[in-house]
Design a binder for these strands. Structure first.
Length: 198
DNA sequence: CCATTAAAGTTGC
DNA sequence: GCAACTTTAATGG
C-alpha cells in the first residue's frame, strides 16, 4: 500500500464505494483528490479516434490512482473506471498536501510509487512498440509475473480477460486470442477453463 | 432448479 | 477486422 489508510483517514479522507463500470474520474477533468484503492480493480484508459480502447494500466489493492496529476495540476489525460465493485479512499488535494507537510516521510512512499509507475511505462512502451503481437502480449505477462513470488511455469493465473490484454497492448481481441493460442501450442502458457496460466 | 440474456471467447472469411 | 457462431456467467423466476 502506498500510504497507510490510518494516515489518510486521520487527514480527513473518506471511503467511497464504486460499482463495476462506475467512473472515478474522466479524461480532461481537474484532479481534486488523492485516490487509493482499498479493494477492487480499476482501469486507466483512453479511446482513440476510431473509438478503440487503449488501457494504460489496470491497478488494484493498495495502489493510488493518478496521483502524479496532483503534483502538476494538469487535467487527467485518461479515464479511471472501476472494473468490479471497489472501495476507494479519497482525500482532497488540500488535505493531501497538508498531510505531506505533517508527515514528510510519506514523500518517500509516493516517490517510490511514482517510480514504479514510470518503470511500468518504460517496460510496456518497449514491448508495445514491437511489430510482433506475441512480443506485446509477452511484455504484459512478463511484467505481471515479475512481481510474483512463485516463478514456476504456469503458476500465475492471468487476472485479465483476452479483451483487456488486447486493449493493454493495442491489439484487437482476435489477434490476442490467436497469439495466446499459439503460445499455448508452444507451451509458453497453459489454458484451463479459459483462464490463462503463465 | 431451469430459462433467458448478456458477456466473453472463438473461428472463418 | 468484421460478423457469425459457441460457450460461460449472470439474472430472475
Amino acid at each position: 500500500m502506498v500510504i497507510n489508510e490510518k494516515f489518510l483517514l486521520s487527514a480527513g479522507a473518506e471511503v467511497k464505494e464504486y460499482n463495476s463500470g462506475d467512473i472515478i474520474f474522466h479524461d480532461g477533468a481537474t484532479p481534486h483528490y488523492y485516490y487509493q484503492i482499498i479493494k477492487g480493480k480499476v482501469k486507466l484508459n483512453n479511446y482513440n479516434k476510431e473509438g478503440k480502447e487503449l488501457i494504460q494500466k489496470i491497478i488494484t489493492e493498495g495502489e493510488s490512482i493518478g496521483e502524479s496529476l496532483l503534483f502538476i495540476g494538469k487535467p487527467y489525460p485518461m479515464d479511471a473506471v472501476a472494473l468490479e465493485p471497489c472501495s476507494i479512499i479519497k482525500l482532497c488535494r488540500n488535505n493531501f498536501f497538508s498531510m505531506l507537510n505533517v508527515y514528510p516521510q510519506l514523500y518517500l512512499d509516493l516517490c517510490k510509487e511514482l517510480s514504479d509507475c514510470l518503470y511500468y511505462q518504460y517496460i510496456m512502451l518497449q514491448s508495445n512498440s514491437s511489430q510482433n503481437p506475441s512480443e506485446r502480449i509477452m511484455g504484459v505477462l512478463d511484467y505481471l509475473k515479475a512481481s510474483k513470488k512463485d516463478q514456476a511455469p504456469f503458476s500465475f493465473k492471468i487476472p485479465f480477460t483476452r479483451q483487456q490484454l488486447a486493449s493493454l497492448t493495442g491489439l484487437c481481441v482476435e489477434t490476442a486470442i490467436r497469439v495466446i493460442k499459439d503460445m499455448e501450442r508452444k507451451k509458453v502458457v497453459m489454458i484451463k477453463d479459459r483462464k490463462i496460466y503463465f
